[in-house]
Nucleic acid binder design. Structure first.
Length: 479
RNA sequence: GCGGAAGUAGCUCACCCGGUAGAGCGAUAGCUUCCCAAGCUAUAGGUAGCGGGUUCGAGUCCCGUCUUCCGCUCCA
């Protein structure tokens, strides 16, 4: 497994230096695990989002998109299992510094009691634990641990910190008057916005199973340790698609979407050797099959996208909590059922990092008599923030005027950048560093025959082309 | 959260045993330049992360605090 931390740090610096990604609130010392996208980073992110959206919705006639709110009714998170599964009380041993989930610690101790034949005591202990957990009585739980002299298996001591609650979800108040406010959560995943709209979308779109609903949006998770740049952030963006299918067909649709999504990743111009599937052995509470698509980042293979066979877990729970029938009438087989779901869920920020990791290159261009190097972002043209730079070779003799005309011709169609400062070589290298795939340069000959040179970022090769063909040549590469 | 290291100009760093900050690159303005960074001139930019202590005097020594990085821990 590659672990090139130097390259990873270089990418982080490059992102900050060239307007891609800044630490959040940096003038106030920053905010841990939160980042802001700068002028070029936001363009790249948007281009990736658009490309995903188009390939999922426009290219699949049976998939439509929605944009659900971040705020959702609190019961949503009861139904999804997030409230019960991800708000665990934790306790640390002061000697070994090891952290335990309180319920795991006590359960393990109860098992030991069982083995020693003290099953009565074990049973009473677990009952007491459940009662205290239900009441969120952390003082009582700590006393329970201390009374039973439960020890840390590493240090062998019973020297514990106070119990603290670890909440996966961020909460806030809905309503302007605090005392009357209801506590609600910032969504920890976008999927539930799709599930709670299942009936609405099915009815209005008139789509028949199998069909999908896609969504791009922010989600929020309180990670215990959130580091590794934009790979793990507290506020992040997901691109998700839930595909509703007939029960019993989940195996084939799971295989279909695995293959389909892998194709998408490779369509970004990234070689197949940089990806792998990681099948989950231990499945989440909602899944009957799950895998990740992992990309080989400079810090090793890491998850970019998850593909989960979610069964009817979510819709069934929403039916139970909402008392609304989450059913679909399948006229082909003349049956009502709760659809099964295959989920594809890709991290947008992780995809940005993947594209940047793949694109970042430090090249040594030295020749016998001159040392030379460049840093280039070889971003696929269709995702690059700026598509075309327009450069007058010198800023006199009427060259800027011609360049300005080209600028005006091209800028309605794709993002262009005009620059007349510094030597031409310097301008080329600046464009390399922010990943601009094409530069056209206006010179004396342009005045005579209406041609310019086009310079390609990756090869640094140049061709002479007619000004009238610039738009067509660039557009061919970016769609 | 724990342990280790570091925090001086936008970036990379210097200031040797404490005497009130300097370079290169970058940026900006101009000059030069007919095709691939490091040609010339000028300008801007730092109360040395923050707070306290020792001292006649602290970027330099001590303490605290914050942030970042590395390792461990956690992660449907």
């Amino acid at each position: 497994m590659a672990n090139d931390n130097k390259k990873f740090q270089a990418i982080i610096s490059h992102c900050k230096e060239y307007g891609y990604i800044f630490p959040s609130s940096e003038i106030y010392d920053g905010l841990s695990a939160v980042y802001d996208y700068g002028e070029w980073g936001s363009e790249l992110k948007k281009n990736i989002k658009d490309y995903w959206w188009k390939s999922m919705t426009q290219m699949h006639e049976n998939i439509v998109g929605i944009d659900a709110a971040i705020f959702m009714h609190p019961t949503t998170w009861k139904a999804s299992g997030h409230v019960d599964n991800f708000s665990d009380p934790m306790i640390d041993n002061k000697d070994s510094k090891k952290r335990y989930r309180v319920d795991h610690l006590i359960e393990n101790f109860a098992e030991e009691l069982e083995e020693k034949g003290e099953s009565d005591r074990a049973k009473k202990l677990l009952e007491e634990m459940d009662r205290l957990l239900a009441a969120s009585d952390y003082e009582g739980l700590k006393q329970l641990i201390e009374q039973n002299k439960i020890k840390c298996s590493v240090s062998g001591t019973a020297h514990w910190t106070d119990i603290r609650q670890f909440n996966l979800m961020f909460s806030t108040q809905l309503g302007s008057v605090t005392e009357e406010a209801n506590e609600i959560y910032l969504r920890p995943e976008t999927a539930q916005g799709i599930f709670v709209n299942f009936l609405n979308v099915q009815k209005t779109s008139r789509l028949k199973i199998p069909f999908g609903i896609a969504q791009v949006g922010k989600a929020f998770r309180n990670e215990i340790v959130a580091r590794q740049f934009i790979f793990r952030m507290r506020e992040f963006e997901q691109m998700e698609m839930q595909y509703f299918i007939r029960p019993g067909t989940q195996k084939e649709w799971y295989a279909f979407w695995k293959a389909e999504r892998m194709k998408w990743h490779q369509s970004l111009g990234i070689g197949p050797e940089k990806f792998r599937f990681h099948d989950h052995v231990k499945l989440a509470h909602y899944a009957d099959a799950a895998c990740d698509i992992e990309y080989e980042f400079p810090i090793g293979f890491k998850e970019v996208e998850g593909i989960h066979s979610r069964t009817d877990f979510d819709l069934r729970n929403h039916q139970q909590y909402s008392k609304k029938k989450m059913q679909y009438f399948d006229s082909e087989i003349n049956q009502n059922y709760i659809p099964y779901v295959i989920e594809t869920s890709i991290g947008l920020d992780r995809t940005v990092l993947m594209v940047l990791s793949e694109a970042y290159r430090e090249e040594d261009l030295s020749t016998a008599d001159k040392q030379d190097s460049r840093v280039v972002l070889a971003i696929p043209p269709r995702l690059a923030p700026i598509k075309l730079a327009i450069l007058p070779l010198v800023k006199k003799d009427g060259l800027p005027e011609i360049a300005r005309q080209i600028m005006d011709q091209c800028k309605p169609w794709f993002r262009c950048f005009y620059e007349e400062k510094d030597t031409i070589g310097k301008r080329y290298r600046r464009m390399d560093a922010i990943g601009t795939p094409f530069c056209v340069t206006v010179d004396q000959q342009s005045k005579e025959d209406g041609t310019v040179t086009i310079r390609y970022r990756d090869s640094m090769q140049q061709d002479r082309i007619e000004i009238s063909r610039i738009k067509e040549i660039v557009e061919k590469q970016i769609f």
